[in-house]
């Protein structure tokens, strides 16, 4: 499809979709949301983009291949285990860090967030891989 309106809209909706995905990711620990939903939302934006542009153009925008999104997501998941193992507590126990960031206030960052980021990247990568595999015409 080659529609100017859709392509223009996609450019602006990109910001909306991605920020929505990120919000869902960050608030996920105590509220509805989380890595899986965030990842799906992010993938949704790329599905939308793929309607406006060609698959080749999107692949260029993504910088790395979808497999590597999956890989880096799994790395995040594995890294989120490290603090619990190093401090000698049971595997996968959540470890939290309180940070006083100017403007935002006291923010608690913890391994569950890192885990969620890993899920986010993995789900996004998996969905993109599905999309590219099924939409590529040979």
């Amino acid at each position: 499809m080659n529609s100017v309106i859709l392509q223009l809209a996609a450019k602006y909706l990109r910001i909306l979709f991605l920020s929505f995905a990120l919000i869902a990711l960050v608030r996920g620990h105590n509220f509805p949301g989380g890595g899986f939903i965030g990842g799906l939302l992010a993938a949704l934006y790329i599905v939308y983009d793929s309607l406006a542009f060609t698959t080749q153009q999107i692949k260029k925008e993504l910088i790395v291949r979808p497999e590597h999104y999956i890989g880096s997501g799994l790395v995040c998941v594995l890294l989120s285990f490290l603090p619990s193992v190093l401090s000698g507590s049971p595997l996968m126990q959540g470890k939290w860090l309180s940070l006083d960031i100017p403007l935002i206030g006291v923010t608690k960052l913890g391994t569950p967030l890192l885990f969620d980021v890993g899920v986010f990247l993995t789900v996004m990568g998996v969905t993109l891989l599905f999309l590219f595999t099924l939409s590529t015409k040979k």
């Binding site: 497999e67 590597h68 890989g71 799994l74 594995l78 285990f81 049971p90 595997l91």
Partner: peptide, 21 residues
């Protein structure tokens, strides 16, 4: 006993290495 989780963690780490290889 964290090492009880090793039979899962080790293949998991190997999968990551192999994805990038």
């Amino acid at each position: 006993m964290t090492e009880t989780g090793l039979p899962i963690l080790l293949p998991f780490a190997l999968i990551i290495v192999l994805i990038f290889m």
